[in-house]
């Protein structure tokens, strides 16, 4: 029974990983990454690492990859095929893949092959449970754990700094902080509700825009004929 589940999960994991790199549509690529992660968590369950399996699904499949799907479904709709990429980038990636391959080969040849004929590590009751993982993280691996959390904190702060509003209009800093309201003050003229109901009018950005709005209405039949645009190369799409 466990062998059957192992092979299903292993095939799923391999197929997902291959799909990530071979599929041309980025959306399907991310989806096969999700399949890969779920198969991996099934493998973790087989190793009786329930906590790792749940964390794998909640953190990676449920949060990180959802954000990938978010971005990819907004920008990559699959109609634009992935470009060939720069030659330098390709060389660098080749180098990294080669290094990774050599490293894995050393690891497998050095230790892994010995274990093929032997028996697997014995299962100790309670191994991989939330309690034992928490104990390991807070006693034996306290320093790496804290360093990793510090790294995550830095990354979060960096993301906030990169994503804050900068260009155009009023920014959040211009609006006095009022601790009685918890609503984010929106940048003005960015499609707020106040504009929608007509309580606020955006200043025209373009002077020609103002001219068109203030000019008296001329019915189309009495307008000056607009010269037909000369066909250029871009017009081929039509």
């Amino acid at each position: 029974m466990s062998a059957v589940i192992f092979f299903i999960a292993a095939i799923g994991a391999l197929a997902g990983a291959i799909g990530v790199v071979t599929l041309r549509n980025p959306f399907y690529s991310v989806l096969s990454l999700v399949g890969h992660l779920i198969s991996l968590s099934a493998l973790f369950l087989l190793l009786r690492a329930e906590f790792l399996a749940a964390a794998q699904v909640i953190v990676y499949a449920g949060a990180v990859t959802v954000l990938y799907v978010f971005v990819v479904s907004y920008v990559g709709d699959g109609t634009v095929p992935l470009g060939p990429g720069g030659l330098r980038l390709r060389n660098v990636s080749m180098l990294f893949v080669g290094m990774l391959f050599v490293e894995l080969a050393i690891a497998i040849l050095g230790s892994g092959l010995k274990a093929i004929d032997g028996k697997g590590a014995p299962y100790v009751l309670g191994f991989g449970s939330p309690e034992s993982i928490g104990e390991a993280l807070l006693t034996k691996f306290l320093l790496p754990f804290e360093l990793a959390s510090l790294l995550l904190l830095v990354a979060a702060v960096g993301a906030v700094m990169l994503a804050r509003r900068r260009a155009g209009g009023r920014t959040l800093e211009d609006i006095a902080y009022d601790d009685t309201r918890y609503i984010t003050p929106r940048t003005l003229f960015s499609g707020t509700m106040a504009e929608a109901v007509g309580a606020l009018h955006a200043p025209p950005e373009d002077p020609r825009e103002t001219a068109r709005q203030t000019a008296p209405y001329v019915p189309p039949s009495k307008r000056e004929p607009v010269p037909t645009p000369v066909a250029d190369d871009d017009a081929k799409e039509d």
Partner: peptide, 15 residues
């Protein structure tokens, strides 16, 4: 043993 995390795993996937 993971109890409530099991529920969260499924609710994470339901997205």
């Amino acid at each position: 043993s993971i109890g409530i995390l099991f529920v969260f795993a499924f609710s994470a996937l339901s997205v």
